[in-house]
Design a protein around this nucleic acid. Structure first.
Lengths: 198, 198
DNA sequence: AATACTACTGAACTACGTTCAAAGTAGTCA
DNA sequence: TGACTACTTTGAACGTAGTTCAGTAGTATT
């Protein structure tokens, strides 16, 4: 039965996710504190643990939203891209870069959650990842119609990882970050070169 | 004057780095605890703070050693590599992969130290990084003699970042890691393709 | 309305990194 | 050598986290 209690719990859950989302976006994962969260949400600290197993679970819920927004941005970029599959790859990768730059701290939180060792990533994570991979493998299949599916899968993963690496190190201001235009240029360099059919 | 005290401090310093190095290698950065460290080193907790500003400083000292070993491994691979510049790139990248796989937790610690926001990476970090970049840019200059230095610098960074990304996501067992051979294959796929001169 | 069950609360517990007053030690000089 | 001074080391105590759970308040059932 969907009781008053259950509704209240659902409301608190959403509320906590939204507050945590804002905190992470503004101040980063490390600024997330159970007591602050509770006082902002107007509930007791213990209440958080009625609704989430621990703070990591809450962060994962925030990350699900972030990942979803990321996927939507990439999909939108793809929808507006020209037919040329190489350009599609470049545009998607640059959308990934833009998302990471515009949502830096939230994006970092995607990778900075500490997962219990040996624990697999949650299902939604693997699914969103799979969705991103599909966006990439479709243009790749058009570029390389002769390659078998395993090779295409590897190339897909390789390209995603490459773009991720370029963005990750490019945005890392500690090691004297790279100008945004140069990041886009590196992405284009790698992807256009990859797409050359010998 | 290089006194008895100073010697003792130096000894403690080295000792702490070695212990921390072993702990990080075996159990990861998050298992590093001031009290455990002190008891293993046979000193008081406070003594750590006579020798390092805080635990992050100690981790940075460990990372300096790790980074140095990494650089040496890559240099060794390069020394044994054939003359062909493309093969040199592939072999170095695979040495990077092997180091990361064989020293997983120590390698992760290189990137997982939390740096104070706005704080630049320490000098030795930038220098070792620069050394790695040189290893890459030399073969690249041989492959692309016509490109200007800015473009080569971008390509160097792009390739390093790409390989880093492939290894990072490939070794991440949380998202169902990739078999070691496939990581090597992805590296080779990207680097060989990059090196095709149109 | 009385009863039984469930959910919420927040003080208390544990586990950290870090500090600093007190105790110890090294260097100096008569 | 022994007394004095300055520096070094110590570890109990502090502050700040995440998390728990006995007590209380609220909800559903009869």
């Amino acid at each position: 039965m969907a009781t008053k209690t259950e509704l209240r719990r659902q409301e608190l859950r959403d509320n906590l996710i939204t507050i945590a989302e804002r905190t992470i976006a503004k101040k980063g994962l490390t600024a997330l504190r159970a007591r602050d969260l509770a006082s902002e949400a107007g509930c007791a600290v213990g209440a958080i643990y009625n609704v989430f197993g621990d703070l990591t679970d809450l962060v994962l819920a925030v990350n699900a939203r972030t990942f979803h927004r990321l996927g939507a941005d990439v999909a939108e970029a793809l929808a507006e891209a020209p037919q040329d599959p190489v350009e599609q790859l470049v545009i998607m990768a640059q959308a990934y870069h833009r998302f990471a730059a515009d949502n830096h701290l939230s994006w970092r939180a995607l990778f900075d959650v500490e997962r219990a060792p040996g624990e697999a990533a949650p299902d939604w994570y693997l699914q969103e990842m799979g969705q991103l991979f599909t966006y990439i493998s479709d243009p790749l299949a058009a570029i390389f119609p002769d390659r078998d599916s395993h090779e295409l899968a590897l190339l897909t993963r390789a390209l995603f990882s490459s773009v991720h690496g370029i963005v990750l190190l490019g945005l890392d201001e500690a090691s004297a970050g790279v100008p945004s235009d140069d990041i886009d240029r590196m992405i284009a360099l790698v992807l256009r070169q990859i797409a050359i059919v010998k």
